[in-house]
Design a protein around this nucleic acid. Structure first.
Lengths: 228, 228
DNA sequence: CAGTGGTCTAGACCACTCC
DNA sequence: GAGTGGTCTAGACCACTGG
């Protein structure tokens, strides 16, 4: 069989065995297709997949080279928190912990492209998995461009779910860092103040407008995993 | 023009405008191809890209549905540290901080599939960007399956570079977490003990054998970024 | 200018899965 | 069984880029 997967396996094999060492040009698509007895499109599909994850580098006119660096691109799954908890087989629980109209923090203002005088809705919430704190989140919504919402709207479902019911987000941006739990963070996560926490900040966009900025804090044992 | 990118843009547009709301079936590939006047393969390519990042969900016989969750898959770039520093426009510096043959830690033994009695080579190194500590790393090498190495081999280049010169790694696995800097970590990163640090653990494999396990610690201001 | 990858086409067959 | 996506083919033209 000459599936694109088998072509990919063939190429990976040559690379692993160092028959095609790092930095070296590998045969052209035409040569591979002829050698393997399949269509060039099939070879192209296989090589494109490998180029996507950084195993090889392709340039027109030059050819395809085995990547020299250890750099790799991996796919990182960023599930909705509800999904994340339910996929663990745990019971999902959500509780609203704060709701106020206020000036954004500096980071939130920057992410939402607002000036200091603008107003945002700041929403705090705690997510639990089997009654254990899983994530403490603060969401700032861009009040200018979103329909009005009341505290009651968020008693049962999260700000993200409320948002997803009303608009379709087109893209986002993440930033992952380590931080020290503040007093409020520690109280909600039931950990000691000053404990290291994993912080994920996400900005959600619809077209050219940033709609929400979320800062999610995870307790120390939390791990973000990915493989390739 | 009917490029696959234009088909993707067309579909994204319908989703953003909620003409095709979340959870809804969108037209079949055949219908889209006929409607847009292009080949089904072109539509397939466009829809596959969208499915890859979680915008739509596809199932045979059923059709293609607009994803309902906020879940997204994003591509995370995990560059080699040298590349990461040089891409910032900073001067890369590497210094070996420790070299010993010893029993692996529990995490390292697990990642390398070794038992407690096995030996590993443990290598500690500090990477600097413009003379500022950028990353403190400990690498455990699976001594059983790797060519012997001496301390001198690592005076000028990192364990990863040494490894890449000898074998071709096929895949890896990451785990990202927040941790508290220990005394040794703090000394090398020039921060206070107990400061939160971002920890990235990576296992590197060649085929079915884990070859190395690395634990990289980054100072608090470090951010891992990704967008979609 | 020529060589390489990037893409499109029209048609075909297969794989999965709901009915 | 029938409808949908998944893939392969053979051929074609285009886009980029090195010489």
């Amino acid at each position: 069989m000459n599936t694109w997967q088998s072509v990919r396996a063939y190429v990976l094999d040559r690379i692993r065995s160092r028959e095609w060492p790092p930095g070296e040009l590998i045969p052209t698509e035409q040569e591979l297709a002829a050698g393997l007895g399949c269509a060039r499109a099939t070879v192209n599909r296989a090589l494109r997949e490998l180029a996507d994850i950084g195993i090889i580098e392709r340039r027109r006119k030059v050819g395809t080279r085995v990547a020299t660096t250890l750099a790799r691109r991996t796919v990182l799954d960023m599930p909705a928190i509800r999904t994340e908890i339910e996929d663990m087989g745990a019971i999902y629980a959500y509780a609203l912990a704060g709701f106020s109209v206020e000036a954004p923090t500096e980071a939130a203002a920057h992410a939402l492209q607002l000036s200091a005088g603008d107003e945002t809705v700041a929403i705090k919430a705690i997510y639990c998995a089997d009654d254990l704190p899983h994530c403490f989140e603060t969401v700032w919504l861009n009040a200018r461009v979103l329909p009005p919402l009341k505290r009651e709207d968020l008693e049962r479902k999260s700000a993200h779910e409320w948002l997803a019911d009303r608009v379709t987000l087109t893209h986002g941006h993440f930033s992952i860092m380590a931080d020290r739990a503040g007093a409020e963070d520690a109280r909600h996560l039931k950990i000691e103040e000053g404990t290291p926490v994993l912080a994920i900040e996400r900005t959600n966009w619809a077209d050219t407008t940033p709609l929400s900025f979320a800062r999610q804090l995870y307790p120390p044992q939390h791990r973000l995993m990915s493989g390739d």
